[in-house]
Design a protein around this nucleic acid. Structure first.
Lengths: 99, 99
DNA sequence: CTTAAATATTGATATATTTGTATTTGTTCA
DNA sequence: TGAACAAATACAAATATATCAATATTTAAG
């Protein structure tokens, strides 16, 4: 699929997905979820040393924009990458950053 | 390079680069610049049907964040993708959008 | 049913982004 | 030099985002 052939609605969707990951906290979250890891809100909140509500908020954005999915297990909600493609994208980004 | 190994400054830089492309107009610009194309501000302004100053502004953001480079030829400034990696990234995104 | 733990949501505030109009700067050419 | 064109910048208004504190919701355990 050539990017330039995307229709306007698809471009909008792409922009929203990308915007969702264009934040240091949210990129850091993706880093922690690489390799099919599942983490709950408290784990993210502790790993990133941010408020619980802030962690929940960022995870909600990533889920809403189709980057993450979640499953509830008892009291915890575990979040994980929705598509393995995203690992590729994230690696793509790190290559671009490091040159 | 594993994304999760990026240092905080690198994550910040990645976030800024991604944020730069997380806008429908700017994604559309990237679409038009795929395949090593060089376009000037007026061409972008006409293609996207946006104000000249808005086009210049978006191009400036993309350049500032390291996504595009530019060369001046006479009265025109031509913009183009700085790294071919970016085409890959952009295609990566379109795959993620279309599934 | 009550309590406690884990998430999610709300409200408020501060900050950032987007866009258009108007203006300024830079470049060519007569 | 001065007219005309191209691009960049300044400014302002509207909109969107990020964050924390406080509160609400959901679930499990007793």
């Amino acid at each position: 699929m050539e990017f330039s052939q995307l229709r306007p609605e698809e471009i909008d969707k792409a922009a929203k997905m990308i915007k969702a990951i264009s934040h240091p906290m949210r990129l850091a979250i993706l880093g922690h979820l690489e390799g099919s890891k599942h983490l709950n809100v408290t784990e993210i909140h502790n790993l990133l040393k941010i408020e619980q509500s802030t962690a929940s908020h960022h995870l909600g954005i990533l889920k809403d924009k189709g980057i993450l999915a979640s499953t509830r297990k008892g009291k915890s909600t575990f979040y994980y990458l929705k598509h393995q493609n995203l690992s590729k994208l994230v690696n793509c980004i790190s290559e671009c950053v490091c040159d």
